[in-house]
Computed example of a mutant assay.
Amino acid sequence: MAIIRLCGAFLMMAVSGLAISGSDAAPLDGMNRVGKGQMNWLWLELYHASLYTVDGRYQAGRYPQALEIQYSRDIKAKELLDATGSEWQKQGLNESQVKVFLAKLAPLWVDVKRGDTLLLVASDENHGEFFYNGQSLGGVVDTGLMQVFLGIWLRDDTSEPSLRAQLLGETSCDC
Rank of each mutant, 00 (worst) to 15 (best):
A106V: 09
P64W: 07
K99F: 06
Q97N: 13
H127I: 02
V98I: 04
V112D: 05
E95N: 12
D124Y: 03
Q97D: 15
G85M: 11
G115T: 06
W88Q: 08
L118H: 06
K76Y: 06
K90V: 14
K76H: 09
E87F: 06
F130K: 03
I75E: 02
L93Y: 11
T117N: 11
D74K: 15
Y63W: 13
K78T: 15
G92H: 08
D74P: 09
V100H: 12
N126G: 04
G128E: 05
E125A: 15
V121D: 03
L102V: 08
W109N: 02
K104W: 00
K76I: 02
V110E: 09
V98Q: 01
A83T: 13
Y63K: 08
D116I: 01
N94A: 10
G115Q: 12
F130D: 01
G61F: 09
G61E: 10
E68G: 01
T84E: 07
G128Y: 04
V121P: 03
H127M: 02
K90S: 15
V100M: 10
E79M: 08
Q91A: 14
E68F: 01
K113E: 10
L81E: 06
A103W: 04
E87V: 01
K113C: 03
L119V: 11
L93W: 11
L67D: 02
K99C: 08
K76D: 11
V100E: 14
L81A: 11
L81Q: 05
T117E: 12
G128R: 05
I69A: 09
N126A: 08
A103E: 15
L118V: 05
R62K: 15
L108V: 04
P64G: 07
Y71K: 01
R114Q: 09
N94C: 06
P64E: 10
Q70P: 07
S72D: 15
Q65N: 03
P64I: 08
P64F: 08
W109V: 08
K104T: 00
V100R: 13
G115L: 08
W109Q: 03
S86M: 08
A83C: 07
F101T: 03
E79F: 05
F101N: 09
L105G: 01
L119F: 05
L105D: 00
I69K: 12
D82N: 13
L67Y: 00
E125T: 14
K104S: 02
D74A: 13
P107F: 02
I69R: 11
D82M: 10
E95I: 07
A77Y: 05
T117Q: 13
A83L: 12
V112I: 08
K113S: 10
A66D: 01
K90N: 14
D116C: 10
L108I: 05
F130A: 10
Q89W: 06
G61Q: 07
R73V: 14
V98D: 01
S123D: 10
K76A: 13
E87I: 00
G128H: 06
W109S: 01
V121A: 03
H127F: 01
V121K: 09
Y132T: 00
E125H: 14
P107S: 04
P107L: 04
D111Q: 04
L80K: 10
G128I: 05
A77E: 09
S72F: 08
I75M: 14
S86W: 09
N94M: 07
V110A: 07
V110Q: 15
G85L: 11
K113N: 09
P64N: 11
Q97C: 06
P64L: 08
Q89H: 13
G115R: 10
K76T: 01
D82T: 12
L119Q: 04
A77N: 11
I75R: 02
D74F: 04
